[in-house]
């Protein structure tokens, strides 16, 4: 950890990159809403494909957006690894907590229908 040199002295990437990221974020958000609409309208193209996979598609898109903002706007890509750790470790715990609670309650409700 001590060997870490001050890495935040690096020049931050410029506005051109930021704009690219913004466009990608916007497109991904549009894709999220599109997936939602497609899955809710049985007549639309790809409905049969998207409908059962909606949650998975949304999780992947959302995670990708999260990662883009963290890496480029929050500068984790070129900043110290310590900062990345300070975000990623809590995120792992957070994901485990959410998943565990959902599993526990799904399991409980499956065992005791009507609860």
């Amino acid at each position: 950890m001590d060997a870490q040199v001050a890495t935040h002295e690096h020049a931050h990437p410029g506005p051109a990159l930021y704009l690219k990221v913004a466009v990608i974020l916007f497109v991904m958000t549009a894709l999220e809403v599109l997936a939602f609409e497609v899955s809710h309208r049985s007549g639309w193209p790809m409905h049969g494909l998207v409908q059962p996979l909606l949650n998975e598609i949304l999780i992947i898109l959302s995670a990708a957006k999260f990662a883009l903002v963290a890496m480029f706007y929050m500068h984790l890509k070129q900043d110290s690894k310590i900062f990345s750790g300070l975000l990623v470790f809590p995120l792992i715990i957070a994901a485990v907590v959410i998943l565990a609670l959902l599993l526990l309650f799904a399991y409980l409700r499956a065992q005791h229908p009507g609860m």
Binding site: I82, L86, A94, V97, I98
Partner: peptide
């Protein structure tokens, strides 16, 4: 500093890490 990192920036990242659990609980 021992890491070469700014102390206040380290603090805000620490705080952000902590906030992750705050929102994780609300989302749960």
């Amino acid at each position: 500093t021992a890491t070469g990192l700014d102390t206040r920036k380290l603090a805000i990242w620490t705080f952000i890490g902590s906030e992750c659990l705050f929102f994780a609980t609300l989302i749960s």
